[in-house]
Design a protein around this nucleic acid. Structure first.
Lengths: 236, 236
DNA sequence: GCGACGCTTCGCCCAGCGCCGAAGCGGGGC
DNA sequence: GCCCCGCTTCGGCGCTGGGCGAAGCGTCGC
């Protein structure tokens, strides 16, 4: 455990409405500009700049300059996992309203860059149940059967192993709507990419003019349901 | 996801050094008095009282009056899980020092009231691998084989099912040192209680005069290592 | 019943932070 | 070269909130 001071410093970064809005917007895994984030948070450019500086300084975000824009993204999937978890806690502490985003969001959605919701949890269980992945130091490793099966599905295992942004090959991420883990890490990312590339998952149109969760919504296509069922026994 | 305002309100409760110290102290699962918590946080009684009021109001703590004392404890294991997770994130954001608590704390420790660390993760994997527990709505349920096996070990399944404090029978709790889940819920609590009762786990003496993690330290006894090995194939 | 003790409430002070408007810096478009 | 645009820095304002000492309330011990 960190010192209380270090712990509080990290938590305090999450404990501001404007910063929370920015971080939630970045949960889609995309990189957004300072201006977009200012609009999302409903504040002016100077205030947004100060917030973003603190988030970067604190290690929660990373920046990428491109021309006169500055693109911000979550620094790691650990950050995404912590935000998801804290969101789940906050929801359970104020239970007045029921599930606010419709059952579809609970069934399948994007968490940072991997699949979450009931489908994400089912995929995780299927991979473990068929012994396609096995416990390894710091997460999971693919078994021989898993490498063959995933390759047959079209998952780019080389890309999954390429440790971009210091990520693990595969590790667990707690699903706050299901209270069971789904798969994160490079493998989680590539599985999601594969499903999107092959149109097993699609992105439904936004539900409103400024739908903050639009980028995270997913939908299982008929073909996706069929292929996932026959390949992994997953009922989407 | 909650609104940014609700999310930030919850995070802000964790984002103060004094409150963080209190919450970390309560991670042992015990109930502590306001005075003890004030001492832990290094603040006076009035300040502690104000902090505790806010934590209770925010749903993170629950209070129990007994005579002239007021005992505070974490309101739920979801709160404990979120604190653990945020602690792991905070550690990973400031990686200068390596593991500060010794390898023993990483091997086995108490998380709220269940077993965490490498042993906790190994137990979770063993229960799933032997199909003693199976996925169920909102967590895990014990299979017929699991009921028999756990009962033979001496785990009080009736107590585990008794949903004290609105807890699930069994669900996952992310282990921040291993990045894989260990078992929480009523079953997790009763397994830990069973191991302590049968002296398979013991509490080592505190490492210093004011060891904040003393109540969470655990150690596997020789008999415990033998019994866990033969019953579940777990190498402690 | 009286004092000791645990805790809370009240009153107050001060630091930190979140916000904005104005100004400054740098990149791109024309 | 000019201006537009995205972003940052600076200066100033207002408020929240965290801290303490003093006082009040309820409980326990004798």
């Amino acid at each position: 455990m960190p010192t209380p001071a270090a712990f509080a410093a990290t938590a305090a970064l999450l404990g501001d409405p404007a910063r929370a809005a920015m971080l939630q917007a970045l949960l889609s895994g995309e990189a957004l500009t300072a201006g977009e984030l200012a609009r999302v948070a409903g504040i002016g450019a100077p205030a947004a700049s100060a917030h973003l500086s603190r988030l970067v300084e604190g290690g929660l975000l990373s920046v990428h300059r491109q021309g006169r824009h500055r693109y911000h993204r979550l620094a790691s999937e650990e950050v995404a996992a912590a935000i998801e978890m804290l969101g789940g806690l906050s929801l359970s502490l104020s239970p007045p309203r029921r599930w606010p985003h419709g059952d579809a969001f609970r069934a399948v959605r994007l968490c940072y860059d991997h699949i979450a919701g009931r489908l994400g949890v089912a995929l995780h269980a299927a991979l473990v149940g068929r012994a396609w992945i096995a416990p390894a130091d710091g997460g999971w490793a693919a078994t021989a059967a898993g490498e063959a099966g995933l390759d047959a599905l079209g998952v780019d295992l080389d890309a999954a192993r390429r440790a971009r942004r210091a990520r693990r090959f595969a590790c667990d991420c707690m699903d706050w709507s299901e209270r069971r883990p789904h798969l994160a890490g490079g493998l989680g990312r590539e599985i999601a990419a594969c499903c999107l590339r092959r149109h097993w998952l699609g992105r439904p149109p936004p539900e409103g003019p400024s739908d903050p969760l639009a980028r995270r919504r997913l939908r299982v296509t008929p073909e996706g349901a069929r292929r996932l069922k026959e390949a992994l026994g997953v009922a989407a």
